Simulated scan of single mutants.
Amino acid sequence: MCRWLAYSGSPVRLEELLYKPANSLVMQSKHARMGVETTNGDGFGVGWYGSEPYPGLFHSTEPAWHDRNLRELSAQASAGRVFAHIRASTGSAVQQTNCHPFRHGRWLWMHNGLLKDFPAVKRDLAIAVEPSLFPQIEGATDSELFFFLALTFGLEKDPPSAVAAAVGLIEDVGRRHGIEHPIQMTVATTDGDTTWAFRYSSEGRSRSLFHSTDVSTLRTQYPDNPMLHALADDARLVVSEPLGDLVGAWREVPESTCVVVHGGGEDLLPFSPAAA
């Protein structure tokens, strides 16, 4: 379906995240190890926070491995909070407005998964979006509509509760249309200061999700690894699949869990849908 990463910590060049790891996101665009599809070539996007009060975005419909502009940008640009996503479409068109991450004000959002039988439930879900938000929907994906449902239910005030309400509505609408397992999701969202990531599916067999472990501990375990010495202690990653094979560097996020990353730490909280 898709692969993504969410980085926070001291500023790093984008190429350190997108190109240099052994199983980098660009590598995963051709050879994903844990995704439903091996190839994720239906476009990509990068979101980052710089000097402006809102995040920057770069979207392209080219495969990530083929885009020269991405390589040029990644060699120069650096940021302390980065969202990056490679897309494998589940049916919607390959166009820039369908590429993740999506943006609203200071917020970014990206999703791996699908709303099952989306054409059947799209109308019912769309009319649940706050009317003042609806004109800002630019693309045709289930992922963007999911984002605007979460915004409708208060994402900017309480992200876990808002996502729980959005998922609750999606499951309710889906089951009223006879869909047994209405949603499959790993989601990441951020306001530029905190990142929230969610792993959940209606069938209880969710797409893969991992978070990095403490960098200072890894330095002690691997004193000769130069990559670890280049990272600050507050560096944290949440990823669809590990960026490398270093033993102890990654922990799988359990089913039905919300990961909250703030500063140099993370908390894992139980997640379940709620009545909208």
Rank of each mutant, 00 (worst) to 15 (best):
V121Q: 03
D124F: 10
P101C: 10
T90A: 10
D117P: 00
C99K: 04
Q136N: 12
L125H: 07
L114M: 15
G91K: 07
W109M: 04
K122E: 14
S92T: 13
F146R: 02
Q136M: 12
A84C: 12
S89N: 12
D142E: 08
F118G: 01
G113T: 11
N112A: 09
L133P: 02
F134K: 14
H111N: 12
A128T: 06
A126R: 15
T97D: 13
R103V: 14
F118W: 11
E130I: 00
V129W: 04
A84F: 11
E130R: 14
C99T: 04
T152I: 01
H85L: 10
Q96R: 15
N112L: 07
F148S: 08
S89Y: 04
A93C: 00
A120Q: 14
W109R: 08
R106T: 07
P135H: 04
L151D: 05
S143A: 13
L149N: 02
N98A: 02
P135A: 07
L149E: 03
Q136K: 14
G91M: 05
G139H: 04
L145H: 04
E138V: 06
N98R: 01
P101T: 10
G113K: 08
D117M: 05
T90H: 08
I86P: 04
F146K: 06
L115D: 04
P101R: 11
L125N: 05
P119H: 02
E138K: 15
T90W: 04
F147G: 03
F102H: 10
R106N: 09
R87E: 10
L108S: 03
S92D: 14
N112V: 05
T152P: 03
F118Q: 06
A140I: 01
F102E: 07
S92N: 13
G139K: 03
H85M: 05
R87Y: 11
C99H: 00
S89R: 06
S92E: 15
A126P: 00
P135L: 07
T141R: 07
E138I: 03
S92H: 11
F148D: 00
V129R: 11
T90G: 05
F134G: 00
W107F: 13
F134Q: 12
L114C: 08
L145P: 01
Q96T: 15
K116E: 15
A126N: 03
I127L: 13
H85G: 09
A84T: 07
R87D: 08
A84G: 09
K122W: 01
D124Q: 15
I127A: 04
K122F: 01
A84D: 08
W109Y: 14
P119F: 06
P101Y: 11
H104M: 09
E144V: 01
K122V: 05
L114D: 12
R87I: 05
R87C: 08
G105I: 05
T90Q: 11
H111Q: 12
L151T: 05
A126W: 08
L114R: 13
V129H: 03
A128W: 00
E138A: 15
G105C: 02
F102L: 11
H85Q: 13
F146C: 09
G105K: 09
F102N: 08
L125F: 06
L114N: 11
T141I: 09
R87A: 05
L133Y: 12
I86A: 02
E138Q: 15
V129P: 05
I127G: 00
A126Y: 14
W109G: 01
N98F: 00
T141K: 08
A150K: 09
F148W: 14
